[in-house]
């Protein structure tokens, strides 16, 4: 019983660290192996190249993050 009580937290800790390493390994595999391969697929590569050539910040959360000069209200011509 004592052995079980002592062993249980260790086993738990081992399981937790193993889960962390498992997750890290999975993320590393996706980011370092799978995504670079996807990036080389013709359709994806074309899309990436086009976005980079046009300097489009696809991950922009707000308009100020874009490399774009917004039109000013005064320039708008009301008929």
């Amino acid at each position: 019983m004592n052995t079980l009580l002592l062993a249980s937290p260790n086993r738990n800790a081992f399981r937790r660290w193993a889960s962390l390493f498992g997750c890290v390994a999975l993320i590393a595999t996706v980011w370092l192996t799978v995504l670079p391969r996807i990036a080389r697929m013709p359709a994806v590569a074309d899309h990436i190249q086009q976005m980079e050539q046009e300097r489009i910040e696809v991950d922009a959360m707000f308009y100020t993050e874009l490399e774009w000069d917004p039109p000013s209200g005064a320039a708008w011509r009301w008929r």
């Binding site: 980011w31 990036a39 990436i48 696809v58 991950d59 959360m61």
Partner: peptide
């Protein structure tokens, strides 16, 4: 992670 070109150019934000 968000800077990987596929992730970035398909708008999977940080």
């Amino acid at each position: 992670m968000a800077g990987q070109s596929v992730v970035k150019n398909y708008n999977l934000e940080y």
